[in-house]
Design a protein around this nucleic acid. Sequence first.
DNA 1: CTTGGACCTGTCACC
DNA 2: GCCTACAGGTCCAAG
Length: 271
Amino acid sequence: MIDVPGTLSSGQVFLWRHVGVFWYVIDGQNILKVDDTGVIDATRTITDFFRCGDDIDRMHESFAQDPLLTELIHRYEGLRITNQNLFQCVISFIVSANSNIPRIRRNLQDICHRFGDKTAYDDIAFCLFPTPAVLAGTDTHHIRECGVGYRAQHIQGASAAIRDGLCDGIDRMSYKEAQGTLCEMPGVGRKVADCILLFSCGHLEAVPLDRWIIRVMHEHYGIGDGTTPHTTRQYDILHDDVRDRLGPYAGYAQQYLFKMARNNSEKPLKW
DNA sequence: CTTGGACCTGTCACC
DNA sequence: GCCTACAGGTCCAAG
C-alpha cells in the first residue's frame, strides 16, 4: 500500500531513522512511529503523514494518457507525498538551497542536536526539531556552526517571521496566496515555496522545479530548455507549462519523476 | 524586467 | 595531494 522506505528516502523528508522493524520520523515537536502500513503511534499526535486520504486510483486515471508516468506508478508503487510539520519543512528546504542531500541531512540533524529538546521514545534517544522561537532567538553565529553557511541568516529570519505569526492560517489560503506569504521569508524563493506548499500545505498542484525535474521535463517532455530558470517570472512560466502537462496531480507526478531521475544517475544514492 | 555573480561547505572528478 | 566544478536556489546590484 504505502512504500514507507521509498517515500522516506525520496527527498521530501530528511529526519528519520530505521530501528528494527520500525521507522521513527522527527516531525517538529512530534515523533511518528511508522511500520510498513503507515503511522501507528506518536509521542504527541498521530498525523496523516502519508496522506492516506489521497485518491490514488483517480491519480492513476489522470496519468493514463502519459506512458512514462503510467510506467513509473507501477515501478514505484506506494510512493507518497507527505504532510509535514510546517516549520520544520520551511527550514529543511531553506537549508536545501544550493546544497546536496547528504549534507542537508547532516545540517538538520546538527540543528536538532544543538537546539532541539532531547527526549526518548521506545527507549531510543531522539532530539526534536527546535521551535520557531528558539531558532529565532539564536545568534546566527551559532546557527552557522551547524554547517549551513550563509543560510544561517535565512534560518534565523524565517524562524522569527513564523514565530511572529506570518504563516498563521496558511492552510486556508489559496496556492498563490500561500506562495506569496511564504516568499516573504528570507531564503524562500519559488522553488523552496513549492516544496513547502506540496509537503506541508497539501497543494498538489505545486511542482518544485529543481535541477532534476527541469532536466526531465526538457528531455522527456520537451518543456523548457533544461536550464534552471533565473528569475521568478521564468520560473512561473515554466511552472504553468509543467503543471498543465502533468495535470491535477502534478505534485505526485513530480515525485515519481524525481525518483526516476535520481535512480538513473550514475552515482549510488547516499542514504 | 532581465542579466551577471556571489555565496558557505563538502564531495569528487581530473590534473 | 591540489584544484575545479557542482549541489533539490536565492538575493542583490546593474543594465
